[in-house]
Design a protein around this nucleic acid. Structure first.
Lengths: 238, 238
DNA sequence: ATGTGCCAGATTGTGAACAATCGAAACGGC
DNA sequence: GCCGTTTCGATTGTTCACAATCTGGCACAT
């Protein structure tokens, strides 16, 4: 009775296997998104075992999940590394993202309630505030969160999960080529999209969203081509 | 030399771990698609170990992959069963599929070469032939293959992978509610889509594709609602 | 007779030992 | 001095044994 309720709920110190998995997954995931784990970083199983205090079985399972979500790359007999998207993959990811978000915007415009728009605008205010504070880490997270929250309004968990995965991969790309693009511009575009959706103009919102994503990709491509940031990556270890 | 080349290629009896995984995955996958493993079927690890002659580690890994692709459901401490899509999930899956295929048709229309259309028409001929032979198993497989091949023309592996997953889930639904809809109608619609694409009319092809998918869903929904096929599933064991 | 609690069997989750594989440095031949 | 070979160390892949958990049936009290 004291430690583990079995029939209904687990109020205290009982951590299920899924909780452990999720904790480790999120820890690695967040570290990648925060650029604390740059692409190409090796993730030896034994190190992770020590760090998280679990056995290799658990670490292995989590690494597989991360690999399926394209956060890490699993090379047979050679261990896991943080995934390193190539320029070609970048192009494909953004193309897929445009197609996905177009569909999501259409569904969201159809299904969103006034309360949904309310929370979306609240999100925009947070963005705006972080932007004014020049709080770039927060802002980057919030900018992604906007797209995710918009996706939730479509009321389709499947498409939402796909977008979640794609946004993660985009963040990974941003982590490689760190553009830190002009935030104010992005924020304006987000607001314009919401305006269009609230007015019921799905096609207009889609067009704005696509322009917005093209702009985002262009910012990244510039950094990607121009200053050759990949000397150590191409020459050293990837 | 006789059994395992290591440096370059593996011409004969050397089977890598990935090959083993893929073999077991495909075996289960195909069995589900062929309705030999109906939804709700239990998949005990020990049985699979015996059947495939591998250890539980391998079985476990494969089951996780199948779970991530929504072919099986992994219940903690209770083992794996073939996934059983609910009517609500069915609605979401088809909605997602329409959105995805719309984007794919648009890209495919833009990127397809004359040779691509050639192979697509060859696909249609195979369909037509299987239909005339009343070879329903073959026809069902070919009908899915048409959508998959069309998706490949978009030249975007990411969206293609998503559609592959969704089509699998659709086939699973078909396996539950076995509509075996009017094949000739489907074939005509496939052909009409290709015509539109070849004429460069992406928007027209998208509209036809959406109608086609709505029709497909309607066929399934009818069987789903009418004869109450889920008595044993809802009341007994799912 | 019905509902509750308990026990046994089976199945899954975990951890540690063993085997296999790969990378890289050291070695020797040309 | 350069290149191919070989050995060694480290890391991953697999297997097996043990622990934890759930299911289903049985006994028992009400």
């Amino acid at each position: 009775m004291t430690t583990g309720e079995k029939t209904r709920g687990k109020p205290a110190a009982a951590e299920t296997q899924d909780d452990v998995d999720a904790r480790i997954y999120r820890r690695i995931f967040d570290s990648v998104m925060s650029q604390r784990l740059p692409p190409g970083t090796k993730l030896p199983e034994s190190s992770l075992c020590d760090l998280f205090g679990v056995s290799r079985s658990v670490v292995r399972r989590v690494l597989q999940r991360l690999a399926h979500d394209h956060i890490v790359e699993l090379r047979p007999n050679r261990g896991a590394i943080i995934a390193t998207p190539t320029p070609e993959e970048t192009r494909q990811i953004f193309e897929a993202r445009r197609a996905l978000e177009a569909g999501l915007v259409r569904l969201a415009t159809r299904n969103a309630t006034p309360e949904d728009f309310e929370s979306l605008r609240a999100q925009l205010r947070d963005e705006h505030e972080a932007m004014h504070r020049s709080d770039q880490p927060s802002w980057a997270r919030l900018a992604s969160a906007f797209h995710l929250q918009l996706a939730a309004l479509a009321r389709n968990p499947i498409l939402e999960a796909y977008l979640k995965e794609i946004v993660s991969r985009c963040s990974l790309i941003v982590a490689v080529y760190e553009p830190w693009g002009n935030a104010s511009c992005e924020h304006e575009e987000h607001a314009a999209i919401v305006d269009c959706m609230e007015a019921g103009d799905a096609e207009g919102a889609i067009r704005l969203m696509e322009d917005h994503l093209v702009e985002l990709e262009r910012n990244i491509s510039l950094k990607q081509d121009a200053p050759q940031p990949s000397l150590k990556q191409r020459l050293g270890l990837i």
